[in-house]
């Protein structure tokens, strides 16, 4: 007799993890389950670059530039690398663009899946650990040049504050205070934020600070895209507060970016910090 019902594994209680379920049902859909031939594949794919995140009283801001590079070529000038992960968190990615976008999709589904099955959301630490697990399973590919390094940020409803987590390719998870940055331009962005960041910034000022940091990253790192004035392409900015996450509208970011550029017309290195 042909049994046309849903497979027994669908009805099995137990796991609330979508990735675990996929591993049993359709392992080929998991990015980490693919075997890549020996050799270095890093030069074959576009790479995403700089992501910056910073907290402010009441929430957290994450922003990413819009450039993907393949060696000396600009592979895409309007790629999006910052995504909402769920209502109260967002994730930005640096590294192999294709794998990273796939991993973000898996992570988004993972969080939503858990929420629907369990009837409640994971804690912010739970989400951060789950992302670490997904990154860890990608280690084999990372060693062949296809690394994905995310930056995770969210509003912790229990603690009442924005929090930022960084990762390494082995799935190491590190909580950062105040601000952090990943990707090729991250050193310049972090240096910039060191001088600009204050812990009493308003939401709009915090967005201005991360846009300044991305400008500084693009100024010194060829793989990070600066504001594209002719095409009006500006960073993707995601803000998460107690009310949930939202993406800054392009027009809002454009306004802030225009103000930053206007300031740089007078002083190309950006705002000067006090010496003492």
């Amino acid at each position: 007799m042909v049994d046309s019902r849903l497979p027994a594994s669908y009805m099995m209680p137990g796991t609330s993890s979508f990735a675990d379920f996929l591993a049993g049902q359709a392992p080929d859909l998991l990015p980490a389950r693919r075997t890549v031939p020996q050799g270095h594949a890093g030069d074959l794919v576009p790479h995403g670059t700089t992501i910056v995140a910073a907290t402010f009283p009441g929430g957290v801001v994450m922003a990413g530039d819009r450039r993907a590079t393949m060696g000396n070529i600009i592979a895409q000038r309007d790629i999006e690398k910052v995504f909402p992960a769920d209502e109260y968190s967002c994730v930005g990615i640096a590294g192999s663009a294709g794998l990273a976008v796939e991993l973000v999709r898996l992570f988004q589904t993972e969080l939503e899946h858990y929420e629907k099955i369990e009837g409640m959301t994971l804690s912010l630490d739970g989400k951060a650990n789950r992302l670490a697990g997904l990154i860890r399973s990608n280690l084999g590919m990372a060693m062949q040049g296809l690394a994905v390094v995310p930056l995770f940020a969210g509003y912790d409803l229990a603690a009442g504050q924005g929090r930022i987590f960084s990762y390494d390719v082995t799935g190491g998870r590190y909580e950062e205070t105040a601000f952090y940055s990943v990707g090729s331009g991250s050193l310049f962005a972090r240096g910039s934020l060191k001088k600009l960041y204050r812990d009493d910034l308003s939401e709009d000022d915090c967005v201005t600070a991360v846009v300044q940091a991305l400008y500084d990253a693009a100024d010194d790192d060829s793989a990070t895209g600066g504001p594209d004035l002719t095409r009006r392409i500006f960073p993707v900015v995601q803000v998460v507060t107690a009310e949930g996450g939202r993406r800054f509208a392009d027009s809002e970011v454009a306004q802030i970016a225009d103000a930053v550029i206007a300031g740089r017309m007078n002083r190309p290195d950006g705002p000067a910090a006090a010496l003492t």
């Binding site: 849903l6 669908y10 209680p13 979508f18 359709a26 999709r105 589904t109 939503e112 899946h113 099955i117």
Partner: peptide, 18 residues
């Protein structure tokens, strides 16, 4: 029906992901 609900969520999420 809880089993059926979970199966539905899994089916939907898998289709939406694939």
């Amino acid at each position: 029906f809880e089993n059926l609900r979970i199966a539905g969520v899994r089916l939907a999420d898998m289709r939406g992901y694939a």
